[in-house]
């Protein structure tokens, strides 16, 4: 069997009910993401970026279609199996940081491994130092700036050494200087072999990604890859979103 891409979505459909109407967040959306890629998903609000990340990250289930990650059809897994899958394979970074307000920075980083027998506190400390928060271990999120909170969230996402990092508008709530630092950190992680999928409005973020995918009304409008060697085109998959 030929090597499959690390992340593969086929014909994803996801709808939400908003009041009495139904909104189609993803409309037969298909994409392949190879291991080690850094992909920026761009599009206006409500275009389906977050829905896509939620499906890839096993946080949600599609109405139809398949999400395959590491050769596992995660849409077929039960709720508890999906939780286990997230724990070992996915690191999430959210727009609003989603830290636990009552826990200190280092405790927030340790949360994902709280119930493990071995709690590598040293690793959590190293991660916080790596993201530049070596002097903020015992600070509560409320005492940290937006950029610092996002860095705690990044350290938390890395504690389990996941293969894939999913970031939803990671620079949406921080100043541009901090955003630049965070994007550099993403690039560094990508250079180390992590696969990153970033949903963003931010051109700065998208500009550093190897692959940029544009999405509108739940369909892929344009997929293109840019690297130092020049621009490469990345076509939407067969049956996927078509150019409008």
């Amino acid at each position: 069997m030929p090597d499959r891409p690390l992340i593969e979505t086929v014909d994803l459909v996801k709808t939400y009910r908003v009041g009495s109407s139904t909104v189609k967040a993803l409309d037969h959306f298909s994409i392949d993401i190879e291991e080690g890629e850094m992909v920026a998903i761009m599009g206006p609000s409500g275009s389906g970026k977050t829905s896509l990340l939620n499906l890839i990250g096993a946080l949600d289930r599609p109405d139809s279609g398949t999400v395959r990650v590491k050769n596992v059809e995660i849409d077929r897994l039960g709720e508890e199996q999906r939780a286990r899958f997230r724990k070992h394979n996915i690191g999430f970074i959210f727009q609003f940081f989603n830290l636990i307000p009552s826990l200190t920075a280092i405790e927030n980083v340790l949360v994902p491994i709280m119930f493990e027998k071995e709690k590598p506190t040293r690793k959590a400390a190293d991660l916080l130092e790596r993201v530049g928060l070596g002097d903020r271990f015992d600070h509560l999120p409320g005492m940290l700036s937006g950029g610092e909170r996002q860095r705690v969230a990044i350290a938390r996402a890395l504690i389990n050494d996941p293969l894939i990092i999913l970031a939803d508008e990671p620079t949406g709530n921080i100043d541009s200087e901090t955003a630049r630092e965070i994007v550099s950190l993403f690039k560094e992680l990508n250079d180390e072999g992590k696969t990153l999928v970033l949903a963003t409005h931010d051109r700065l973020v998208a500009g550093r990604a190897k692959v940029m995918v544009k999405i509108r009304d739940g369909r892929m409008v344009r997929g293109k890859a840019h690297s130092r060697d020049g621009m490469m085109s990345l076509s939407p998959k067969e049956g996927g979103g078509r150019e409008k």
Partner: peptide, 12 residues
């Protein structure tokens, strides 16, 4: 908070 715990892989 429950959502965050679930998203980082906590079982129910």
């Amino acid at each position: 908070e429950i959502g965050v715990l679930r998203s980082v892989g906590f079982s129910s």
